[in-house]
Design a binder for these strands. Sequence first.
DNA 1: CAGTATCCTTTAGGATACTG
DNA 2: CAGTATCCTAAAGGATACTG
Lengths: 121, 121
Amino acid sequence: MKPTIVYGIGVEATIEVIGGKWKPIILCHLKHDTRRPSELKRLMPTITQKMLTQQLRELEDSGVIDRTVYEQVPPKVEYSLSTYGRSLEPVLELLCTWGEEHIDRRKTQFNENIILEHTEL
Amino acid sequence: MKPTIVYGIGVEATIEVIGGKWKPIILCHLKHDTRRPSELKRLMPTITQKMLTQQLRELEDSGVIDRTVYEQVPPKVEYSLSTYGRSLEPVLELLCTWGEEHIDRRKTQFNENIILEHTEL
DNA sequence: CAGTATCCTTTAGGATACTG
DNA sequence: CAGTATCCTAAAGGATACTG
């Protein structure tokens, strides 16, 4: 018999899947495109190799991303949202756009110096 | 001159405001209702007094919730989404519903024993 | 290029006791 | 009731070196 898990509200289950410092960012970068680890590293210059791999494994274990390995030398790997992971697209979209609007607000209301690099690789 | 802050993608700014273990849960409980600290504590039995106060302060500092103090004995305090915080409502709504659907999936696809207490106080 | 393994630091989070 | 203050632990995260 499996243990019983109790949640008080739906968002608790969401946090378990996409919570943390890096997962939402990784997922947003996979939102429209398949990405290689080296691309993700360039998109997130401050993430360490260890954290990148670790977070990608956890997202894979949760079933929201797919890992595709091309058997060649040098190795090539691609990550993408899984079929199930695509159900997160609306969530990720809102998380991104709210942040963009929040940045605008901080610029205009509070005169903060903020740069949003909308990197295209 | 204020320092320059650099973001790679919008969601990074969102995480700074609603990231962490407790903030999304607190905000979801404030999504439709004004709540007293004691109510929040009952809705989140596993949060400690310290974390509750701390997270509420941070949300207040970010400008997404309001704190209303009624000058009476015993003291009465109420927290609610601020005008600006209400811009988060669509985000919070999606975070909740995605979690609910994720729980359903885990129940039906993987036969996990999960209880979602949709507590009404 | 993609990933492991090890060790280390930081910080998020918790237990407990106390106050107006 | 709402909140502080102190101390402590666990977990998240990072630096570095190495491998197929």
